[in-house]
């Protein structure tokens, strides 16, 4: 199923960005994950080079969030291997896992803010507890990051998450993900629920985090405008496998009917015939 395009694009991208990247920052080979008899990931092969921004696209419920959680170690794959910066991390536990987590920043799809803590402590959490920074210093960085995501720190820093709108919570989640300046950042639908202007602010911020700080990014989005802005490469997941992976510039002439249907948002095409959603929609009609 895997397109030849993937291999070609994968080899080119590294040389374009930083040159010395023989080992990819993230590599998944044949990763499988099931919940009961629901086979969500059915052999994922994916590589992200250092300093590269990869965007994963794919239908709702195809396992994009599950894919991120497998790399993070929140879920454990049933089969296959995951390597981070050349080290196998598939079943890593304990102290080694905690050390590995220092490399990661994650924006959750539902923000996942700690509702017992004020906004600034949410953003500063990784600095205070993970990096053992003093509270005063951590607050300064938190305020800076809150402003960077387009919120007024003066107004929101001491509010609790429940007092914010969904889009504001999402941005606080983003501020928390980048607060520790991690090497690898995961964004699960960073622009969902934001107005178009704020979405673009966030896109710029992601580009800046990746290009400015040299981080590696793996994002998930349904927002094709956002994908085009933040991606160096695009991968499409369908039925538990990566069916296409290539440079963003090749997206419009991928020659892959699944990708074409997805990026143009057409109801008719190869995807609707198989997806669960289409089945249930038909049976209702």
């Amino acid at each position: 199923m895997i397109n030849d395009n993937k291999v070609a694009a994968g080899e080119n991208a590294g040389t374009g960005s930083s040159g010395h990247t023989a080992t990819p920052m993230i590599r998944m080979s044949n990763v499988k994950k099931s919940f009961g008899d629901k086979h969500i990931l059915r052999g994922i092969d994916l590589e992200v080079k250092k300093g590269e921004s990869l965007v994963v696209i794919g239908g709702s419920g195809t396992g994009k969030s599950v894919l991120l959680k497998n790399i993070l170690g929140i879920l454990e794959p049933d089969e296959g291997t995951i390597e981070v910066d050349g080290h196998v991390t598939t079943h890593m536990r304990g102290r080694a896992r905690v050390e590995l987590m220092h490399k990661f920043g994650m924006l959750f799809q539902g923000a996942a803010l700690f509702d017992s803590l004020p906004v600034w402590e949410n953003v500063a959490f990784g600095l205070i507890h993970g990096e053992k920074m003093s509270k005063g210093q951590a607050r300064e960085i938190a305020v800076e990051k809150i402003n960077a995501v387009g919120l007024s720190a003066q107004r929101v820093a001491d509010l609790y998450p429940a007092e914010l709108s969904g889009g504001m919570q999402k941005r606080v989640g983003l501020a928390r993900a980048i607060a520790t300046s991690p090497e690898i950042i995961f964004f699960d639908e960073p622009t969902t629920g934001l107005d178009p202007i704020m979405a673009d602010v966030i896109n710029d911020l992601i580009v800046e985090s990746v290009k400015g700080l040299g981080a590696t990014a793996l994002s998930i989005t349904h927002d094709m405008a956002s994908a085009r802005k933040i991606a160096d490469k695009i991968a499409m997941i369908y039925e538990g496998e990566i069916i296409w992976c290539g440079d963003i510039k090749d997206l419009d002439n991928s020659g892959n009917p699944y990708v074409e249907q997805f990026i143009h948002g057409r109801a008719e095409g190869p995807i609707s015939k198989h997806s669960d959603f289409a089945k249930s929609a038909k049976s209702k009609a």
Binding site: M106, Q109, A112, L113, F114, T180
Partner: peptide, 21 residues
Amino acid sequence: TMRVTEQIDALVTLSVNPFKY
């Protein structure tokens, strides 16, 4: 609620052990 809203997962990604915290 923390489990359902992924706050426990978020703790883990911020290098804090949920058992300890």
